[in-house]
């Protein structure tokens, strides 16, 4: 039962991702991306990481994607944007990126060819995660907080309107 669920979730994640990256409308793409993230959250849950699954839904599919939505709405790309996106997605443009990505995937497969283990699916409780996080990994928490602070400051600075100067040369 669990196994079937896993493969279905995988399939959903993969197809949603593929669709998300090939849409010409940014909002549609974003919806597919959220779907993909939710499917990955299911996989997390099945792997016995309920805490991670919850965070995936809350922060990834929730907070981060909302940011995207805001930005897309602010930019107000419209129909002209969709047409341009479609024009850029000609088969010729697929050639090199497709080749490179395939190459890398093949290599990753080669690298994975020696892993006989079976995932046990034993749950790691949020309590255990919390203990580890504020125990041996407390430094990682500090680093993450600093990183988020930097992101905050950077976003605040970049988001200001008057950063564009009239005297710029273009």
């Amino acid at each position: 039962m669990m196994e079937v669920l896993f493969y279905i979730a995988s399939l959903v994640a993969l197809s949603a991702t593929a669709l998300a990256l090939t849409r010409s409308n940014a909002t549609h793409a974003l919806i597919y991306l959220i779907l993909s993230l939710l499917a990955v959250a299911v996989v997390f849950f099945l792997l016995g990481a309920p805490f991670a699954a919850a965070l995936e839904v809350l922060i990834y599919a929730g907070a981060i994607m909302v940011l995207f939505v805001f930005v897309i709405m602010m930019l107000n790309l419209g129909e002209a944007g969709d047409a341009r996106e479609r024009q850029w997605l000609t088969p010729r443009n697929w050639l090199v990126p497709g080749f490179m990505a395939t190459l890398l995937f093949i290599e990753l497969m080669l690298a994975l060819s020696h892993t006989p283990d079976i995932v046990s699916g034993v749950a790691v409780e949020p309590k255990a995660v919390g203990l580890a996080l504020f125990g041996p990994y407390v430094l990682a928490v500090e680093i993450a907080s600093m990183l988020l602070l930097a992101g905050l400051v950077g976003a605040y600075h970049l988001g200001r309107r008057f950063i564009v100067r009239e005297s710029e040369d273009d």
Binding site: M1, M2, E3, F6, Y7, S10, A13, L14, T17, A18, L21, S36, V40, V43, L46, L47, G48, L89, N93, W94, V96, P97, G98, M100, A101, T102, L104, F105, L108, M109, L112, T115, P116, D117, I118, V119, S120, G121, V122, A123
Partner: peptide, 27 residues
């Protein structure tokens, strides 16, 4: 508990997703 898929399959999923992301980045 009870999930008994090979670790390999999960990792293949991750690799595929990663490759998709990479593809999108270049495309």
């Amino acid at each position: 508990g009870g999930l008994t898929v090979p670790l390999e399959h999960v990792l293949v999923l991750a690799a595929l997703l990663f490759s998709f992301g990479l593809l999108g980045l270049m495309l």
